[in-house]
Structure formats: structure tokens, C-alpha cells
């Protein structure tokens, strides 16, 4: 049984289709990423999966239960890390876990023995009695993750789990998510950090304007959509250089501000040419998911 199956999901607000026919199916034990610019429909899709928004059309099966018809029963078996921290500021760390466990119908006597393990997992050992107000952003995020585990869920839904965190805190979250995957949990993750998606997800889908633009394994997506090598050329003269010279050496060129992105199968001729342009700085790297994302969703700003 798939932990989450969504087919032809549609949702409109005020005549605008925010989710316009999205479908995907999670495999047990994988980390699946939903990527997309702001307004792509990621959060609405998650809300529909939780039964907090009734879709206009489509079917959702969450841990074997039809949603929204039996959303409450389904939510009993999943854990959610929301985009914005909503820990209880009036409580200590331990009280947050106990009170949350009660929402799952657990008795305090069932929850208390779990607390040391959850705190150890989230790197908060010794903080049981600490007030939420004294925790850093990273600690709050980890506690939110621990809170989502109180009912030992089969599936975790994470909405932008590392937004707003510093690099150290992000790496720690990634490490914990990998541990959960190693324990056999399934994870659905939304993010707009491409490195996060590439690092964690076995498969990912790119959403734009409420539609799924592509879906697959990160390496396969790069291979399918984009040339393997990228040379970024930047500096004041880069746009002018790109307009005159770049096409001779590149399969595809995109200019954004003062940077030209040259997509190539073989970077050697381009790099040799660039040696004669000392004012231009270059960065040669393999293509990544961000390149795929930008190719498929465009470079213009989304607000």
C-alpha cells in the first residue's frame, strides 16, 4: 500500500486554479520532494492531503484512508512539520510533547517514557524543562520534528522544514531526516532549496502554476532536461560577452543580471576561450537540480 496516493487533484480559489490536476504516488520508505516557486500549489496540495482543504476534484488516499472523508483516522498515523513554528509558547519542551500526544488520544503514561528518546533524537537532551521562548530557531524546528514523531507515524509531511535556518541547523535537520528514512519512515517534503531536495529525495516533482512539470530521480531529471556541464560567467562585461560569443561554445545560454549561464556537453573549448577574457570570472560545475528547476519554471520572480 502506498503511504500517499494523489490523483488529478484540483483546487480553485476565486476562479483561479491553484492546483490544476496534480497526481503522484509515494513509495514506502522513500523521501519524495515537491519543488516549486512560491504560489506553485505546494502548500495547498499538502493541506488537501491532510484533509484541511476540500479539493474541487481528485482522489487522495493517505495511509490507506480516503481523504477528506476519513482524514481524522488518516492523521492519526502521520506526522506533520508545518512551515511556520506553532509550538506552544506557554509550555516547556516536555509539556509541548505531552500535550501534543494527548491530541492523538495517548495517555500521559504512554507519552512520558517516549520523551527522553525524542529529546535525544532532536538534540535537546537536558532541555525538557526549558521554556520554548529560550530555544533557538534550529532547536524549535527540531522540537517540531520531535513533536511530529510522538505518535510513531508511518509518513511524515514536512512543509519547508529548513526555511529560515542557518547552515549548521539545516545540516542537523537533514541528518535527522536521513535517520528517519533509515528507520523505514516515508517522507513527503516541500522545499525551494534545490540542494536540500537533491540531497534528501529519492524522487522529486517540480510544480509550477498548479501543475506538475516533471517528476523523477534527481540524477535522471538532470540527465533528461539539461546539459551535464555548466559554466557560470560573471562580471560587468558578461551580458555583452554572452550576446556576442557564448553561443559559439555552448548548447544553451541564459543571462540573469550580470551572470551568463552556459550549458555545455563539453566545457573545455569554452574554458579555453574564456582564458582570453581576464575581466570575466568563471565557475565550472556539474549541472544540478536548480538548473533543471530554473529551465522548467523560468527565471522571472514569483511573488
Amino acid at each position: 500500500m502506498s503511504p500517499l496516493r494523489v490523483s488529478d487533484l484540483r483546487k480553485s480559489y476565486d476562479g483561479r486554479e491553484v492546483v490544476a490536476g496534480i497526481g503522484f504516488e509515494l513509495r514506502r520508505g522513500e523521501c519524495y520532494g515537491l519543488l516549486g516557486p512560491n504560489g506553485a500549489g505546494k502548500t495547498t496540495t499538502l493541506r488537501c492531503c491532510l484533509g484541511l482543504t476540500a479539493p474541487d476534484y481528485g482522489e487522495i488516499s493517505l495511509v490507506g484512508e480516503p481523504v477528506p472523508a476519513r482524514a481524522r483516522e488518516a492523521r492519526a498515523k502521520i506526522g506533520v512539520v508545518p512551515q511556520f513554528d506553532n509550538l506552544d509558547p506557554d509550555f516547556t519542551v516536555a509539556e509541548n510533547l505531552i500535550v501534543y500526544g494527548r491530541y492523538f488520544g495517548m495517555a500521559d503514561a504512554e507519552i512520558r517514557p517516549l520523551i527522553p528518546g525524542l529529546l535525544e533524537f532532536s538534540g535537546l537532551t537536558g532541555k525538557a524543562e526549558a521554556s520554548i521562548r529560550t530555544l533557538s530557531g534550529g532547536m524549535k524546528r527540531r522540537l517540531t520534528l520531535a513533536r511530529a514523531l510522538v505518535n510513531d507515524p508511518v509518513l511524515l509531511l514536512l512543509d519547508e522544514p529548513t526555511t529560515g535556518l542557518d547552515p549548521q541547523a539545516r545540516h542537523l535537520i537533514w541528518d535527522r531526516l536521513k535517520r528517519l528514512l533509515a528507520q523505514g519512515k516515508t517522507i513527503l517534503l516541500t522545499t525551494h532549496f534545490m540542494d536540500e531536495a537533491e540531497r534528501l529525495c529519492q524522487r522529486l516533482a517540480i510544480l509550477d502554476d498548479g501543475r506538475m512539470v516533471t517528476e523523477g530521480e534527481p540524477r535522471a531529471l538532470i540527465h533528461e532536461h539539461i546539459e551535464p556541464q555548466v559554466v557560470e560567467v560573471y562580471g560587468e562585461d558578461a551580458p555583452g560577452w554572452a550576446a556576442r560569443e557564448a553561443n559559439a561554445f555552448s548548447q544553451r545560454v541564459e543571462v540573469s543580471g550580470e551572470t551568463a549561464f552556459c550549458y555545455v556537453d563539453d566545457a573545455a573549448p569554452l574554458l579555453a576561450h574564456l582564458a582570453a577574457w581576464p575581466n570575466l570570472r568563471t565557475l565550472h560545475r556539474p549541472a544540478n537540480v536548480e538548473d533543471v528547476f530554473l529551465k522548467l519554471t523560468g527565471r522571472e520572480l514569483r511573488d
Binding site: L50, L52, R72, E73, R75, A76, V80, P82, F84, N86, L87, D88, P89, Y100, Y103, F104, G105, N151
Partner: peptide, 14 residues
């Protein structure tokens, strides 16, 4: 302000 209801409704509480 605290989004407490939101967190509660992510659990099996309507």
C-alpha cells in the same frame, strides 16, 4: 497569532 489551532488540527483532531 500562535497558530495553536493549526498545530492541533494536524493531529487527529477536527
Amino acid at each position: 497569532i500562535q497558530r495553536t489551532w493549526e498545530s492541533i488540527m494536524n493531529a487527529p483532531v477536527t
